[in-house]
Design a binder for these strands. Structure first.
Lengths: 246, 246
DNA sequence: AAGTGGTCTAGACCACTAT
DNA sequence: TAGTGGTCTAGACCACTTA
C-alpha cells in the first residue's frame, strides 16, 4: 500500500513535476478539467481543486473559455547588489519624487543613531525598468553631514550614488547593511508599483556606514514578481578547520 | 443593484475586513463552515471556498476538528548573510532530509555550468529556529568534485559548511552569488514550512564559485513572515569621480 | 456524542473561446 | 456549436477535537 495522500494533491503533483523540470515549458496548454478527471479517475471537482492549487502556487494560469496554461515568468529585473556597486538604481531610470527636510521619526532615528526629531533630508525616487515601476526608494540622511555644502541631497542634480556624493562631502562610506524582508504592500506603495495592496513586496532596509557611524539609511520597496536582488559576495580567504587545501 | 461579485468573495470579504481592522484579533475562532453557509445563505462549499482563500492570504489558519482561527503572526528570525559567514544555517539546527545522487535538471545544470543529465549530489535540509521551521535548503553539487573521497555530501556527518567541506576536498571557494526573489510557496515547501501554498516565500538561489567555476548551488526557501536576511557588505575603497575626499 | 474540517462525488448553469 | 473555465448546489464519509 502507498501512503494515501489526497487525490487532488496527486493530480497536482503529476503536473507540478513536469512543469518544474521543464518538460512542460511555459505557455503549454494543460489538459482540461474534464480530461484530467478521466485520466486520473477522479471527479471534476478534484481536478479543479488541483489546478486551483497550482494557480495559487504561481505555476499555472487560466484563460477562461480556453484552458489552463503553464505560466510564463514575468521578466526578471535584476538589481545588482555588490560591495563595489551599491547603487540600487544602477541600471534604472530614477524618477525624482521630491526631497525635503523632516524631523527624524523613531524608526529612522534608531537606524541612523540620532535623536528623534533630529533634522534629516528625505529623498524619494521611483525606479523604472522599461517603463515599468519596479522600486520605490526613500532615503534619510542627517542634514548635519552636508548642510551648507552643495553636496546635500537637495542639490544632487540626478539620483547620484549617495556613496559618491557623500565622498565629495568628505564622508567615506565603507560599509553597507541590508536587511531584506517581505511584507504586504501598503497603499501608497501598491499604487506606485502598480500592484494590489496586500500583494507581497520585497523590502530592503539599507544603511550606509562610515566606520561605525551610520550616515544614510533607505527604504527600498520592490515589486516582487520579476524582481531579483543579486548579491555578489567575496569570501575573505580563511583557514578551514583542519587540513588546508593544496 | 450591486455589482454581482462571486458569493465566496463576498463571504471572504465579510471576514477579511474585521480581521485586517483588528476587530477579530489573532486567535479568534471564526464561524464554522456550516454557520457561515447558513448566515450568508450559500452552500457549505462556498463558505469553504471563502475560508480557503483567507488561508492562502495568510489571514486564517485551520485546526481540524476544532475550527478556523485568525492567524497569529510568528516571531522574526534573522538570517545573517555575510561574505565571511556564508553558511545559511549558521545559528540554526539543521535537520537532514536526505542526500542522493541525481541527474542534473536544466535549471541546475545551467547554474553549475554542466551538461543536463550530469551526475549531481542533491542534499536537503530543514532549518529550524526554536523548533519552528524557517528554511528549506536544497543543495546540488557535481559528484565529480568529491567522488571517491570521504568529503562528499553523502559522507558529511552533519550539515557542515559546504565551503569548509569543499576546502578539505581540495576546492577553494572564494565567491558567492545570491539571487533573492519572492514567489508563492509550493506544495512540498509549504507543508515543511508550516505555511499555506500560495503564501509568499523568500527564495535565495545561491551559487558557490571556485574562481570562475561554479562548484555548488543551492535553493534556500524561507518562510517570509518574520524572516529577515541581513547582508553585511564591505565597500572596496575606491575613487569617486572627481575631488577625492580628505 | 456532537461538531468540525478535509475530502470527494454527481450533478448543474453561465460566459467565454475556439472552430 | 462544442468545449472550456468559473461558479454553485446537495449530498456523503472520515478523522479528529471538544465536551
Amino acid at each position: 500500500m502507498e501512503t494515501s495522500s489526497p487525490r487532488y494533491l496527486m493530480v497536482a503533483e503529476s503536473l507540478r513535476r513536469p512543469i518544474l523540470e521543464g518538460r512542460l515549458p511555459p505557455g503549454t496548454r494543460l489538459p482540461s478539467r474534464a480530461q484530467l478527471a478521466v485520466r486520473h479517475r477522479v471527479s471534476e471537482q478534484v481536478s479543479r481543486h488541483a489546478l486551483r492549487l497550482l494557480m495559487t502556487e504561481g505555476l499555472v494560469e487560466s484563460r477562461p473559455g480556453s484552458g489552463y496554461y503553464v505560466r510564463r515568468r514575468p521578466m526578471a529585473h535584476r538589481l545588482p547588489r555588490t560591495g563595489s556597486d551599491t547603487g540600487p538604481m544602477g541600471t534604472f531610470l530614477g524618477e525624482h519624487l521630491g526631497a525635503t527636510t523632516i524631523a527624524a521619526a523613531p524608526a529612522e532615528a534608531a537606524r541612523l543613531n540620532v535623536r528623534v526629531g533630529e533634522s534629516l533630508y528625505r529623498t524619494r525616487h521611483l525606479a523604472r525598468s522599461e517603463e515599468i515601476p519596479v522600486m520605490i526608494h526613500t532615503s534619510w540622511e542627517p542634514t548635519a553631514l552636508t548642510r551648507g555644502t552643495n553636496h546635500s541631497p537637495l542639490h544632487a542634480s540626478t539620483d547620484e550614488n549617495p556613496v559618491d556624493r557623500l565622498a565629495r562631502a568628505g564622508t567615506v562610506v565603507d560599509r553597507v547593511l541590508e536587511c531584506v524582508t517581505v511584507r504586504p504592500a501598503r497603499e501608497p506603495e501598491a499604487e506606485l508599483l502598480g500592484t494590489e495592496p496586500g500583494q507581497a513586496a520585497l523590502v530592503i532596509e539599507r544603511t550606509h556606514f562610515s566606520g561605525q557611524r551610520p550616515v544614510e539609511t533607505s527604504h527600498l520597496v520592490a515589486a516582487p514578481e520579476g524582481c531579483e536582488l543579486v548579491y555578489r559576495l567575496s569570501l575573505s580567504p580563511r583557514m578551514p578547520s583542519p587540513r588546508p587545501s593544496p
